[in-house]
Structure formats: C-alpha cells, structure tokens
Design a protein around this nucleic acid. Structure first.
Lengths: 145, 145
DNA sequence: GTGATTGCAAATGTTTTGCAACACT
DNA sequence: AGTGTTGCAAAACATTTGCAATCAC
C-alpha cells in the first residue's frame, strides 16, 4: 500500500502541480492528527510549525487533498467543515453528540449493504454516501438531570 | 390530523409569539412547494406575493418553523441549507444523482431501526440523522455510453 | 399600550479569489 | 525561464443581529 504522501505526490505530478513545503506540511499535519480538524484548527496547527503559511493556502491545499482522495470532508452540522485523513482507512460513519460534540466512528455492514440495495432498486450506481447520526451521549444526558 | 397551519398557530401562541401576515405567507409558500427550497429561493417566491418582505424575516420564520417541527432543514453539502415541509410526512432520506442532481426520496425501516440500535449501543439518545446516498442514475449512465 | 415583529443595513463567520511577489521543476 | 504557488487583503457567500418604526393582541 502506497503512503498517503506518495499518493499526493503522484496526484500533483499527474495534474502538473508542484510539490511545495506548504503542501507537505499541511498533509503531514493532517496525518498526525487523530481528531477531525476544521480548516481554522488546521491553520492554527500549521502556523505553529511555519507561521508564514496563509489561510488561503490551507483551503486550497485541502481542496487538492480531497480531490486526490486522501482526505475526506465531514459535515457535523455546526457550520464548519471538518476534515479527516481517509486514504487507506476503512469507510466509517459518525455518531455525534450534539451537546459535547463527542464523536464516535461507526461501521455497520448491514446498513452499508442495504444502501447498495436501495440504490440498485432505483437504478443508481452508488458512488458514495454520508451518514451522520446526531444524538445526546450518556454523559450529557446525565449532566442535565 | 391537524393542519400545519394550525400547528404553527398553536406553536406561536404557546410561545407568546404573534401571527403575522409574513409568517402566514412564508408557511403557505413552503407548503405549496414540492421541491426543497433554499432560503434564497423561498425569498424569491415570497417576494412575488409580497415584495415588501425582507430576507431576515425569511430566516427568522424558517427558524420558528423548524423549531415547531413543521419544516426540516436539509443539507445537501452544497453550501446552502434547503428546507422541506415535514409535518405529517414520514421521515425519509435522499438518493442523489451526482450527474443530473435527480433526487429520490427513500425510506427504509430496516436502516432506521439499525440506526437506533447503533446509537443505543453507544449510550446515545438519537435525535436526528442525515443520510445521503450519492450515485449515478440509470439515465445518466446510459448517456455516457 | 405593550411587547413582539418587521425591514433595513451592518455585522458575522466561513470560504474564495485577484494580484503582485515568489518558488518549484 | 516559465508556469504554478504563495500570502495578503479584499470579496463573496449564507446567515445573523441591532435598531427604530410598526403591528398584533
């Protein structure tokens, strides 16, 4: 299995784009991160390593990484797009606490299979899907009492 | 089954809010609409009936309608929130053609139940969920050949 | 009459874009 | 050298908010 870095390099080469220190740094920063970072949060982390990097470069590089299928945009319905390194990882969905933003990764073959069936039934060839479950976690429910 | 209009009136009364021509008009406009309107599109439709209504009133009223469980916000991940009248209608998800944007409403009790189970397993009380299936419809696949 | 509501314009917050300077190949 | 890239600031975009005038009850 290729490293994400190499996938990126290949993607850039294939599209006549250039490998730059900023692009390397931004990808490294995402890869070293367990959590789902917003562009703003990523910007802060990148700045710690190189204060000269601009916001715009973050956005532009994220777009490339998404396009290269290395990173996936997530929508937790709080107004910001978050990103996670997805290359080489198994697909999963998210269960999100709407109070504390706790985020659990879920994987359910039964649902995955059913989604395929539904798409097929309607004559669709499924490309991708997004599923977000929003709820309140046990901790937060107990806090309220 | 109560009419959505009456649900709204009750909701307003319960919260010491007032019934205004603008609020009536906005609800009517959404109810008369089959498609999923963005705030912008709704604004345009409302203006045709009463040009004096402001954007802000659209947003404020949409918030009320969502809160009253009459209308549901949809997120098709294209930067705009869309809305659909949901009161009295069964919950459904969306199957979207990424080529022609065709949009099919789907309903699958099996998936719904499974979602509940997954949430419960993790100690969550499920509030809502979003599921979007993205694929290419038969028509668009045939066009390509 | 009183408090909620409105339209407007200004503010907000995220993401995008134009541009001149600069860097990768 | 030449095209792609960068940082900056300004722009764009959807949405929210402050406020004085107005309206519903």
């Amino acid at each position: 299995m290729k490293m994400p870095q190499d996938v990126f390099i290949d993607y850039l080469a294939d599209n006549n784009l250039k490998i730059t220190p900023q692009r390397r740094l931004i990808l490294e920063t995402i890869l070293n991160q367990k959590e789902h970072l917003s562009s703003e949060e990523l910007y802060a982390k990148v700045k710690k390593k190189d204060a000269s990097v601009g916001q715009a470069t973050i956005y532009r590089t994220l777009k490339l990484l998404v396009d290269a299928d290395i990173v996936e945009p997530l929508d937790f319905a709080d107004g910001v797009t978050r990103y996670e390194a997805s290359y080489g990882k198994e697909h999963h969905d998210h269960l999100i606490c709407t109070v504390c933003s706790k985020n659990i990764e879920i994987m359910d073959p039964l649902i995955e299979r059913r989604q395929e069936e539904i798409a097929e039934k309607h004559g669709f060839k499924l490309c991708s899907h997004k599923m977000y479950l929003y709820g309140i976690c046990e901790e937060c429910r107990n806090k309220k009492l």
